[in-house]
């Protein structure tokens, strides 16, 4: 691990605005348009160093996915800064304000971040190999032959060479997620983002995906992982971060967080996952 910071999150705020337009009947009864604002991120600070594995824990709705999606600008932020390799992604700063940058520039910067989704999101009309090759050809502009060679290497890393010609519909959930990992990894990003990579899987398929992620971590890949798998988090994390209602309430090594939780929310979270922990302040 080095001091080099790959992802730097500074005081990030994010509010979702949900507008409910009532139907005609309700409008005639005098009901007005309803605007709901949910503040999902309320000032988040986080540094991810090169080679580090950061695991984000937190109860449902605490803003974990949103934080990840803000890193590669699948979501916008309201204020604060997120730097990846020292650059804003999706914005440029003008007079202290964030302004949307050109889509082509954002696209290029996004190749620095590989993302693995809960629902896999494999391209349904492409084989396993085709999924990994497509961005290599379309985005990295590799020749067909070079893309194929590189894609095969990446599929090998997740142990799926024998399934390379299968379409997603002919792959198990675990295999789909491993293809998705291979696809993101093949782009050679500086950091991999995992958003609950095993939450959509049958229990017996979880382990094969976790094993692949562990293998990648062991090669020194920088990673941010959102997960509810506590044992896995403890095994793999260099840093564990606990989120609650849009802020980071606790951050530390697995030992610190699991054995000496400082925040009541961390304690509650660990208890809920069936881990025997001492309540905060008892040691």
């Amino acid at each position: 691990m080095s001091d080099e910071v790959i992802v730097s999150v500074r005081d990030v705020h994010k509010t979702f605005t949900v507008t409910k337009t009532p139907g005609l009947a309700q409008r005639m009864r005098g009901k007005r348009r309803e605007v709901n604002r949910i503040e999902v991120l309320k000032g988040v600070d986080l540094d991810v160093h090169k080679g580090e594995t950061v695991v984000i824990l937190g109860s449902s709705g605490s803003g974990k996915s949103t934080l990840l999606r803000c890193m590669n600008k699948l979501e916008t932020i309201d204020s604060g800064r997120i730097l990846v390799n020292g650059h804003l992604v999706g914005y440029e700063e003008r007079g202290g304000k964030l302004v949307d940058e050109k889509a082509t520039v954002t696209a290029r910067k996004r190749t620095d971040l590989g993302m693995v989704f809960q629902q896999f999101n494999l391209f349904l009309n492409k084989t396993a190999l085709g999924n990994v090759m497509a961005p290599l050809q379309d985005v990295k502009k590799l020749s067909r032959a070079a893309a194929e060679a590189h894609a095969l290497e990446s599929l090998g890393k997740v142990g799926l060479l024998d399934r390379k010609d299968n379409y997603p519909s002919k792959l198990s959930g675990g295999q789909k997620q491993r293809v998705a990992i291979a696809r993101a990894l093949a782009m050679d990003p500086s950091v991999m983002l995992f958003d609950e990579p095993t939450s959509a899987l049958d229990p017996e398929l979880v382990e094969e995906v976790l094993a692949v992620i562990k293998a990648i971590a062991a090669q020194g890949t920088t990673m941010v992982i959102v997960t509810h798998e506590m044992q896995f988090a403890r095994d793999i994390a260099d840093v564990i971060v606990v989120m609650d209602q849009g802020i980071i309430v606790e951050a530390g090594t697995p030992d610190e967080v699991f054995f000496r939780p400082k925040h009541p929310k961390t304690y509650a979270l660990l208890r809920r996952s069936g881990l025997a922990v001492e309540p905060p302040g008892s040691v």
């Binding site: 996004r110 391209f123 961005p135």
Partner: peptide, 13 residues
């Protein structure tokens, strides 16, 4: 999700 995956891999919209 298909679009999001593509965007995250560096495709322009």
């Amino acid at each position: 999700g298909q679009t999001e995956a593509a965007l995250s891999l560096g495709y322009t919209p």
